[in-house]
């Protein structure tokens, strides 16, 4: 960190600002001016970023006829209607999609949390034959781009007769190798004294894992759980190819059919985009801190 070194020696100031030293008052003025300018730029960026969503919401509250007239008509429309929402929530499709997304996401979360934490426990605590190989396999697994495997996974699921079942969405997403790492890292930080006392008292490894380690691991369970939930809820490429029955489609696959099947029902299309995103927005409001920390700490990106 050569740069840090320089700043520590304070040499950078002389290098950077060799002009006359500015007065305290001037400096305070500069700082305030800078803060105001920052606030303005930031406010404009935030508006720009909110605009697409606000536009979708505004459109979804107009009639389909108004929405097809174009941007000025939508903007001028003051007769808000929840027609699109009642149509969408009244038809069965959307509820089927919600159900499919809720079931597949929840089951994947449960299986991932249990399987990954179980796998992390021996990696953190035990010596066993094949440990190095397991470790290398896990490291290799983390680099595998799962999207690229969609064709062979599809063939495998077809051979197992699992196409058009929720399992075709759940099972391929359970081996999230990164979850093993997150758990192992957390377990490494738990002091051993507790479980050693339990072991001396004759508790089995399973009991130690289940009654000592897991209760201490709530923060990491929720982090892995939330990140897995969001990932599975949003996954498009896997269910796109494995689910063709409209009753079983998850939200992303269902939404992918909307553009074609709703045609000119533009307000309905925007309302479906909003409704598809809504559950995650609600989750965000309840779990803001955990989601942000989870993303910053582990990185959820594909």
């Amino acid at each position: 960190m050569a740069t840090l070194q320089t700043t520590r020696n304070n040499r950078f100031i002389t290098a950077a600002a060799s002009g006359p030293v500015r007065s305290k008052a001037q400096q305070a003025k500069d700082a305030r001016g800078f803060r105001i300018a920052s606030a303005i730029v930031l406010g404009l960026l935030a508006l720009l970023w909110l605009l697409p969503t606000l536009w979708a919401i505004k459109t979804s509250l107009s009639s389909n006829a108004t929405a097809s007239l174009g941007a000025p008509a939508i903007l001028a429309d003051t007769q808000l209607t929840n027609h699109s929402y009642s149509v969408l929530l009244g038809s069965g499709d959307l509820w089927n999609w919600y159900l499919a997304s809720a079931i597949t996401s929840s089951l994947t979360v449960i299986l991932t949390v249990v399987f990954a934490s179980m796998a992390a426990y021996p990696l953190s605590r035990m010596q066993f034959r094949g440990r190095t190989v397991v470790f290398l396999l896990v490291v290799a697994g983390i680099m595998v781009p799962t999207q690229v495997l969609v064709v062979p996974v599809f063939r495998e699921l077809a051979a197992m007769g699992l196409l058009n079942t929720y399992w075709s969405v759940i099972l391929p997403q359970v081996p999230a190798v990164v979850a093993v790492f997150i758990f192992k890292q957390f377990f490494d930080g738990i002091p051993r004294e507790l479980e050693e006392a339990a072991r001396v008292d004759g508790a089995s490894y399973w009991r130690v894992y289940w009654s000592v380690i897991m209760p201490l691991s709530r923060p990491v369970v929720s982090a892995v759980g939330i990140l897995t939930f969001v990932t599975v809820w949003n996954n498009l490429i896997l269910p796109l190819f494995t689910l063709s029955n409209p009753k079983l489609m998850t939200i992303p696959v269902g939404l992918a059919t909307v553009q074609g099947s709703y045609g000119q029902r533009l307000a309905d299309i925007q309302a479906s985009a909003i409704l598809g995103a809504l559950p995650l927005v609600i989750i965000y409001f309840f779990l803001q801190r955990r989601i942000v920390e989870g993303v910053a700490g582990t990185g959820l990106k594909g």
């Binding site: 935030a46 969503t53 979708a56 498009l236 939404l255 299309i269 479906s272 985009a273 965000y284 993303v295």
Partner: peptide, 16 residues
């Protein structure tokens, strides 16, 4: 404003 779109489904983003 900046972060929430990231956790939304790509299908919603595409429609918008």
């Amino acid at each position: 404003a900046f972060f929430v779109p990231f956790i939304l489904p790509s299908a919603s983003i595409a429609l918008i």
